[in-house]
Amino acid sequence: MKQERTHYRGHFGVYFSVTRFTVMPEDRLALRTLHFCDAGCDYWRVQDFITETYDRMLAQKRPCEMVVAVSRPLTRDQAQLFNDQNDALALATAGIIGKAFPVLKPWQRKATGAASGFSLKFALDTRHAGDVIVAVQAWVEGGIGQQHSSRTMLIKNTGGAQ
Rank of each mutant, 00 (worst) to 15 (best):
A135V: 11
K99Y: 10
Y43A: 07
V136E: 06
I50L: 08
V136I: 13
M24I: 00
L34M: 14
D84Q: 09
F16E: 04
G95E: 01
L74M: 01
T75K: 03
V103L: 05
T6P: 09
S149Q: 13
G145R: 00
E26D: 12
C64R: 02
G159T: 08
T19I: 04
V103Q: 06
F118S: 14
E4R: 11
L124H: 08
G159P: 02
D48H: 13
R56L: 01
Q146F: 04
P73N: 07
E26G: 02
V46Y: 10
P73H: 08
R76H: 03
T112P: 04
C37I: 10
K121V: 09
V134P: 07
L31N: 13
M57H: 06
Q162M: 05
A129G: 10
N86T: 00
Q47R: 07
A88R: 07
H35G: 11
A135H: 10
R56I: 00
L81N: 04
Q147N: 02
M57I: 05
D77P: 00
D87Q: 11
A88G: 05
V134C: 04
P102W: 06
T51H: 03
R5C: 11
Q162K: 06
Q137T: 14
F122W: 14
Q47V: 06
E141Y: 12
E4Y: 10
Q85V: 04
D131N: 12
R32C: 11
R32L: 15
F12V: 02
S71F: 08
A138G: 07
C37D: 12
N83T: 02
A115Y: 15
A100T: 03
A115C: 15
L74E: 03
T19K: 00
K156Y: 10
L58H: 14
Q147Y: 04
V46T: 13
F16I: 01
Q78P: 00
Y54T: 00
N157K: 10
T53C: 02
T53N: 01
P102Q: 07
